[in-house]
Nucleic acid binder design. Structure first.
Length: 471
RNA sequence: GGCCACGUGGCGGAGUGGUUACGCAACGGUCUGCAAAACCGUGUACUCCGGUUCAAUUCCGGACGUGGCCUCCA
C-alpha cells in the first residue's frame, strides 16, 4: 500500500519514499515549556503520533526515529519564572518552571494515548550545535555579526546560488512583499528589515552561553535556531518529515529551513513538510487573551484521554476543528460502543481498509468510516473479525484498556454505588417475576434518575438478565 | 492591506465531473410486559452569482462568510 503525504512546500500530495527505509526520520516541533498545554497543542501531538504509529507499522517499529523537541529557552519562560518564583535566582526559577511544565506535558500526552517520541531533545542541551550552525552561516556569508547579535540574511540566501531553496517558498511569499510589509520599527543593527536573529546578547540575570562568531559577551539563541540544531543532531542534515502546527509555517519553519539549507548547502531540509490545522472552541476563536481556551488537563478531568483522541481524529488533520462538547459527547458514545464490541478481543493485524485510509495523507475521517464498517463485521462475526477491529483501533492508540476498566472508570467518575444499583435491580427482577410492572417501572425510573440506564435481556438458558451502565 | 486555507443534509464530517459516504440525531419496523439496548430499513446536502461542459457539489472567475500567517513577539 502506497503512503501518500501532502507537502506544504510543494503544495501537493505525493508518494512518500523514505531516504532510508531502515531509519525513517521525523521531526515535530514540541512545546515551549512555560504553562499547561491547551487542547490546540494536543492536535499535533495526536496527529503526528498517528503518523508515527503508521510509519512503525509500515517500516517496522525499530525503523522509525521520531524527534519532538522541548524548547526550554524562551522569553515566556523567563517571564513566568520571574513571576512564579520571585525569591529565587532567575536561572533556578527557570529550571523549576521548565521541569514542572515538562512533567505536566508528559502526563497530558501520555493520557491522550500518545507514544513517547524516540528522542525528546532540549534546546539548552544543544547550544553547541546551534553555535556550530551559526558559525557555518557566518562563514558562508549568510549571516553577519552586528552589535553582539548574529543576524541571518534572507537576501544573501536568495542571492547565493541555485542549489538553495528560495527564501519564502514554504510560507509562499516573496522577499519583496516582506520588505514592503515590514514594520517601521526595524532594529538599527539590521542590514535589511527581513533579517532575523540567530543569536542575541543576554540581559543581566538571563540564562546565557558563550557566544559564537567572535562575540565576547555571553548571549542566547534566537527563536528558530534550536530546531535546526536539534534536527541536525538527531536526524542529520536532511531527513524525511518535518511537522507542526500551521502557525509555524511562517516564520518558524521558513527560517529553520533557511538556516539548515544554507548551513549545509542543501536544497531541502525535510522531504515533506506537514502542518496541522487549528482549533476553535465552541465556534469561537481560541485565544488566551479572551480566556477562550481549554487546557488538556481540564479536558482530561471531564473526558477519558481516548475520547479527546478520537474526537481529534474525526477531522482530517489539515482542516480546522470546531471543538465542542456536543462532538465530544458523540465521540464518547462511539467509544462506549466500540469498547463493548471489541475491548477484550485479541488481534495483531489491523484491517487493510484502515491502513489504506491512513496511507492517504492520514485520512483519519475515512479511517473512522472504515472502523464503523469493521465494528459491524465484528458484532456479527467471530473472533477473527473482532480481532481485526480491535487491532485497527489499537493502531490508532485507542482501546488501550479492558472493557471492565473502561466501564469502571466511567462508573467511578459518576460516583454511583454499584452495590446499590445491584440491590435495586434484584428488587426489580423480583417485581417483574411476579408481574408487578408498576413497581418494576418505578425502580427503572429511580435508576434513570440516578443516571443509570438498564438493558433487559436473556441469558443462554432464557433466564431474564438485566445489565446496566452509566447513561 | 498582502498571502493562504476553508464554506457539504438537523449536527459532525469524507469524497467525487454524471452512480449509497460514514457517524450522531430524527422517523418506521423487529424484539420487549412496556421501555432501553441491539438489529433491519427510510428521508433531507453540497454558501451565493457567473463561466467551461452533454453534465458541476466537484474545474475556472467573482462575491460573501469563517479562520490562519504577515519576523526577532507570542
Amino acid at each position: 500500500m502506497e503512503l501518500r503525504l501532502y507537502d506544504t512546500l510543494t503544495k501537493e500530495k505525493r508518494p512518500f519514499t523514505p531516504l532510508d527505509p531502515e531509519n525513517v526520520r521525523m521531526y515535530v516541533c514540541g512545546p515551549t515549556v512555560y504553562d499547561f498545554a491547551h487542547i490546540g497543542n494536543a492536535r499535533p501531538v495526536i496527529v503526528f503520533d498517528v503518523l508515527f504509529r503508521l510509519l512503525r507499522h509500515v517500516y517496522g517499529a525499530g525503523h522509525v526515529t521520531y524527534v519532538r523537541n522541548i524548547t526550554d529557552v524562551d522569553d515566556k519562560i523567563n517571564l513566568r519564572a520571574a513571576r512564579d518564583f520571585p525569591g529565587l535566582p532567575l536561572n533556578e526559577a527557570i529550571r523549576k518552571v521548565t521541569e514542572l511544565t515538562e512533567r505536566q506535558f508528559h502526563d497530558d500526552v501520555d493520557a491522550i494515548g500518545s507514544l513517547r517520541p524516540t528522542v525528546e531533545p532540549r534546546a539548552t542541551e544543544h547550544i553547541a550545535e546551534m553555535r556550530a550552525i551559526i558559525e557555518k552561516l557566518v562563514a558562508g556569508g549568510f549571516a553577519y555579526v552586528a552589535e553582539d547579535h548574529v543576524l541571518f540574511s534572507p537576501q544573501a540566501m536568495n542571492a547565493a546560488n541555485k542549489v538553495l531553496p528560495r527564501y519564502g517558498a514554504l510560507g509562499n511569499r516573496s522577499l519583496d512583499e516582506m520588505i514592503a510589509g515590514a514594520r517601521v520599527d526595524v532594529a538599527p543593527y539590521k542590514r535589511d528589515s527581513t533579517d532575523f536573529v540567530l543569536w542575541k546578547p543576554a540581559k543581566p540575570g538571563e540564562p546565557s552561553w558563550p557566544s559564537p562568531s567572535g562575540i565576547t559577551t555571553p548571549g542566547r539563541p534566537g527563536w528558530h535556531i534550536e530546531c535546526s540544531a536539534m534536527a541536525w543532531k538527531h536526524l542529520g542534515e536532511r531527513f524525511d518529515i518535518h511537522g507542526g502546527g500551521i502557525d509555524l509555517v511562517f516564520p518558524h519553519h521558513e527560517n529553520e529551513l533557511a538556516q539548515t539549507c544554507c548551513a549545509f548547502r542543501a536544497d531541502r531540509m525535510a522531504n515533506v513538510w506537514m502542518h496541522n490545522g487549528f482549533l476553535q472552541v465552541e465556534s469561537e476563536k481560541m485565544s488566551k487573551s479572551t480566556g477562550n481556551f481549554i487546557t488538556i488537563r481540564e479536558s482530561l478531568a471531564e473526558w477519558p484521554g481516548e475520547v479527546l483522541r478520537l474526537n481529534m481524529l474525526k477531522t482530517h488533520y489539515r482542516s480546522p476543528i470546531d471543538w465542542t462538547s456536543k462532538s465530544l459527547e458523540e465521540s464518547s458514545k462511539t467509544l462506549d460502543d466500540w469498547y463493548a464490541v471489541a475491548a477484550d478481543a485479541r488481534g495483531d493485524r489491523p484491517a487493510d481498509a484502515v491502513i489504506e485510509a491512513l496511507s492517504d495523507d492520514l485520512n483519519t475521517a475515512q479511517t473512522i468510516t472504515a472502523l464503523h464498517g469493521l465494528r459491524h463485521a465484528a458484532a456479527s462475526g467471530g473472533e477473527r473479525e473482532r480481532g481485526e477491529f480491535a487491532a485497527s483501533l489499537r493502531l490508532l492508540g485507542l482501546l488501550s484498556m479492558s472493557a471492565a476498566e473502561w466501564k469502571g472508570r466511567k462508573q467511578q467518575a459518576s460516583g454511583i454505588d454499584a452495590q446499590q444499583v445491584d440491590r435495586l435491580l434484584a428488587d426489580r427482577t423480583a417485581a417483574r417475576a411476579r408481574k408487578d410492572f408498576k413497581e418494576s417501572d418505578r425502580i427503572r425510573d429511580e435508576l434513570a434518575a440516578m443516571g443509570v440506564a438498564i438493558k433487559d435481556g436473556k441469558d443462554a438458558d432464557g433466564k431474564p438478565v438485566t445489565t446496566w451502565e452509566i447513561a
